[in-house]
Amino acid sequence: MGKGADMDGCGQFMKYSMFFANFVIFVGGVTVLGIGVWTLADKAFINELLGTNLFMGTVYILMATGGMVALLAFFGCLGAVKEIKCLLLLYFLLVLVIFVVMLVGGILGYVFREKVHDTMEQEMQASIRMYGQKRAVTRAWDATQETLMCCGVNSFQDWGDQLPDSCCIEEEGKKLPCRYESQNIYPEGCLMLTEMFVKDHAEIIGAAGIITACLLLLGMIFSCALFKSIE
């Protein structure tokens, strides 16, 4: 009888532990989804200058899995409260798949962070020649220069005689005339600033993915324990 009571107590502990773990996982999934949406909405302009789709590909992976994790965590809470064994088993299998995908997405964020310099300078030098000819590249350069307050790849001299207005310093909401006045041009090139900008955001994305993947591992452990404790 003591053993049965002990098992009941253990089962109850696992039940509420899994419920709490899935609540934390739900918050993690929503956080990852939010970071992905923020990055996509506010940072996607820079993608044309990177020379690779790895950065935005990682964002899309984590957005999709973040949304799925939040939904799955809800069903994990339901399975824990209702003590439905088949739902717990399905939960475990789905979480295992998402765990792998999210872990890969998080690692890709860090891999991109280390490789960003290798491709960026070459792509930026190539794309600067397409300014004014390709709309996406033109918008990317203008947005990058105005957002990061920089000009050209290494300096404004990269533009030659085709200096765009986005290189001009802005004061009180107005662009200063800068075509023939270098003191009114953003002094720093965009390569270093863009590299720092992307690396910082890739680190945030990577960390969010890996932390949430670790939380999923916790959810799998509790789901297995609860599955075994249910008679």
Rank of each mutant, 00 (worst) to 15 (best):
residue 6 D to C: 09
residue 8 D to G: 14
residue 10 C to F: 15
residue 10 C to V: 08
residue 16 Y to E: 10
residue 21 A to Y: 03
residue 23 F to M: 11
residue 24 V to Y: 02
residue 30 V to D: 09
residue 36 G to P: 14
residue 36 G to S: 15
residue 37 V to W: 06
residue 40 L to S: 07
residue 40 L to F: 15
residue 43 K to A: 05
residue 44 A to I: 10
residue 45 F to R: 10
residue 46 I to N: 02
residue 48 E to I: 03
residue 49 L to A: 14
residue 49 L to E: 02
residue 50 L to K: 02
residue 53 N to K: 13
residue 53 N to T: 14
residue 55 F to L: 04
residue 57 G to Q: 07
residue 60 Y to F: 10
residue 64 A to Q: 07
residue 67 G to L: 07
residue 70 A to C: 06
residue 80 A to S: 15
residue 80 A to L: 07
residue 82 K to M: 13
residue 83 E to K: 12
residue 83 E to N: 13
residue 85 K to Y: 02
residue 87 L to P: 00
residue 93 L to E: 00
residue 94 L to V: 10
residue 94 L to I: 08
residue 95 V to L: 15
residue 96 L to T: 13
residue 97 V to F: 05
residue 99 F to Y: 14
residue 102 M to G: 03
residue 105 G to H: 10
residue 105 G to A: 12
residue 107 I to M: 13
residue 114 E to A: 15
residue 114 E to S: 15
residue 116 V to Q: 02
residue 117 H to D: 15
residue 117 H to I: 09
residue 119 T to W: 05
residue 119 T to Q: 11
residue 123 E to S: 15
residue 123 E to N: 12
residue 126 A to G: 11
residue 129 R to Q: 15
residue 130 M to Q: 11
residue 131 Y to S: 11
residue 134 K to T: 05
residue 136 A to K: 14
residue 139 R to K: 14
residue 140 A to K: 01
residue 142 D to H: 12
residue 148 L to P: 02
residue 152 G to L: 06
residue 153 V to L: 06
residue 153 V to D: 03
residue 153 V to F: 06
residue 155 S to A: 08
residue 156 F to D: 00
residue 159 W to A: 00
residue 160 G to V: 13
residue 163 L to W: 07
residue 165 D to R: 14
residue 167 C to A: 10
residue 167 C to G: 05
residue 170 E to S: 08
residue 171 E to V: 05
residue 172 E to Q: 12
residue 172 E to Y: 03
residue 178 C to D: 03
residue 178 C to N: 00
residue 180 Y to F: 09
residue 189 G to W: 06
residue 189 G to N: 08
residue 190 C to H: 10
residue 196 M to F: 11
residue 197 F to H: 07
residue 200 D to S: 13
residue 203 E to H: 07
residue 206 G to T: 05
residue 210 I to G: 10
residue 210 I to K: 03
residue 214 C to K: 02
residue 215 L to G: 03
residue 215 L to A: 00
residue 217 L to S: 00
residue 219 G to F: 02
residue 220 M to S: 02
residue 222 F to I: 01
residue 223 S to R: 03
residue 226 L to H: 01
residue 229 S to R: 03
residue 230 I to G: 00
residue 230 I to F: 06
residue 230 I to S: 02
residue 231 E to T: 01
residue 231 E to R: 11
